[in-house]
Design a protein around this nucleic acid. Structure first.
Lengths: 150, 150
DNA sequence: TATATTTGAAGAATTTTATTCTGTTTTAGA
DNA sequence: TCTAAAACAGAATAAAATTCTTCAAATATA
């Protein structure tokens, strides 16, 4: 596919951290004029290197600062159960991320709640009604050390 | 602090998914004109509800599509060892996220590599030279099911 | 209840930025 | 070295952000 060079990489790294720079500002950072920078960014968008632009929100202010990693074991390991689990989990807003993983558990979910009470309610009422789940194990986040996205 | 209403919440949800809408487009979505929408967004930025705007990149294209959750136990649990670990981990580019957690392990890291070979090299050469680490346990991501950021 | 006062909105005016266009330079290949 | 394609700079244009003014509604106050 498309080849990217060092300047493209610089632009990607800058935009990954802050997408609100103007092309003029970006141009100065990479020692080019505005128009080639504009063209490069469009190329990076069209070729898929840049997937999209989003706003990062303050989870604490939005009552979603209590983070838990929740491991899931399915009841059985057939395709139907798996598909059912995926489709159920997609609808639960507290589940922010979900991965199919190696090891003792089948899935690892990152869950975002207001507090322990909210998480407890999530486990009992939301996960509790997902039939495909065999067992769960919760790992609580005490503090966030590093997040290249947040 | 500042109180937000339902329209603010709508704007936050929209921008969290796509920050490239124009204020005119956003105005139509929430049934307002451009200027109040503009003011609301500025207010949400200044009050910290919106932390920043970023570009999401394609990890696969950038040779970072191999994701591993890496659990870490420290050698000892004193403040110096902990601080040393944090400061070391901050410098390692493959570590995309890191959390201080409850349970058998002390930290959970999300690691982003090109492939298994790269990850192996990361464990041996990068983690291998972090003195504070006692032991590690790797959980490999087989597939990403849900990601509210990606 | 009537009257200020504040708040939020609309729409126009202005400024800034994105985007396009044109001409030139560099680069790669024959 | 010559030619063609790609990449750049700078100007011109279009679109968006931002500001400003006015108005209406909501809220508070007498």
């Amino acid at each position: 596919m498309e080849q990217i060079d060092d300047i493209d990489l610089q632009l990607l790294n800058i935009l990954h951290d802050n997408s609100k720079y103007t092309v003029k500002e970006l141009a100065k950072m990479v020692n080019l004029s505005a128009s080639p920078v504009f063209e490069r960014i469009k190329r990076l968008e069209n070729s898929g290197y840049i997937k999209k632009y989003i706003a990062l929100l303050d989870a604490e202010k939005l009552n979603r600062g209590f983070i838990v990693f929740c491991n899931i074991k399915l009841k059985q390991h057939d395709r139907n159960i798996g598909n059912q689990f995926v489709s159920d989990i997609m609808k639960i807003e507290e589940v922010v991320e979900c991965y199919n993983i190696s090891g003792d558990y089948d899935f690892l979910m990152k869950v975002s709640a207001k507090d322990m009470k909210h998480y407890q309610d999530f486990v009992f009422n939301k996960l509790g009604s997902v039939e495909s789940i065999g067992s769960t194990q919760s790992t609580f986040v005490m503090s966030e050390i590093k997040n290249m996205y947040g």
